[in-house]
């Protein structure tokens, strides 16, 4: 069981980790390990590898907690960023480009629905009441898909181009313009 996010004090937790209080890291693990593993698994596409990444992430959270600065972003965001970038670096450093196969097509099914139709899982949309979703909806569906696949699946430009059967240059331009549009929309 995890505590609803607003009730879990991520910042106090990281500050306690920075003081060397092991119990704080245990609490963070209980609170977020499953979600962090989900994020890592989605990018790594392998259970064992995803656990390796979450292992490394918790070690890094513990050893680098002193470098977390509350002025520069949310504590929960920091924890997710540490994990995501470990996963992304691992995939890029090992050139683990995913061949977009039927398996991954299947795995992508819930998100592929972002391609236009709004037949998305209601639960997922409820979780996504933040501003980013409103701004994503203003994007052309294909471009929205690019952004979501890149972020959630850790796809490279080339992988997205293959997945959408769209020229690489087009995908790069879409992502660049979509990021610009998101920044304007979100401030």
């Amino acid at each position: 069981m995890t505590i609803p996010e607003p009730l879990f004090d991520y910042e106090a937790c990281l500050l306690a980790c920075a003081r060397g209080e092991r119990q704080a890291l245990v609490a963070l693990y209980a609170q977020e390990s499953a979600r962090l593993l989900g994020v890592a698994r989605r990018i790594a596409r392998d259970d064992a590898l995803a656990e390796d990444i979450v292992h490394d992430a918790f070690i890094k959270i513990w050893t680098r907690a002193t470098s977390y600065d509350p002025q520069r972003g949310s504590a929960r965001g920091w924890v997710f960023s540490v994990t995501r970038h470990l996963a992304l670096n691992f995939m890029r450093d090992n050139r683990l480009e995913v061949q977009v196969s039927e398996d991954s097509e299947l795995a992508l099914q819930p998100l592929a629905n972002l391609d236009g139709s709004l037949a998305l899982d209601a639960l997922e949309w409820r979780a996504g009441s933040e501003r980013i979703y409103g701004c994503l909806e203003q994007l052309d569906p294909a471009r929205r898909t690019c952004i979501v696949h890149a972020y959630v699946d850790g796809y490279t430009h080339a992988e997205i181009a293959k997945k959408l059967a769209t020229p690489l240059g087009t995908v790069k331009a879409w992502i660049k313009r979509s990021l610009s549009a998101l920044r304007e929309c979100m401030g």
């Binding site: 693990y29 593993l37 070690i59 965001g77 979501v148």
Partner: peptide, 24 residues
């Protein structure tokens, strides 16, 4: 990081194996 963070909620959680915490 702050803008895109909510997209992580699209990903279903996956409970870790029992070995993960002892390993950490």
């Amino acid at each position: 990081e702050a803008r895109l963070l909510p997209l992580n909620d699209l990903v279903p959680a996956q409970p870790p194996s029992r070995q993960l915490w002892p390993r950490i």
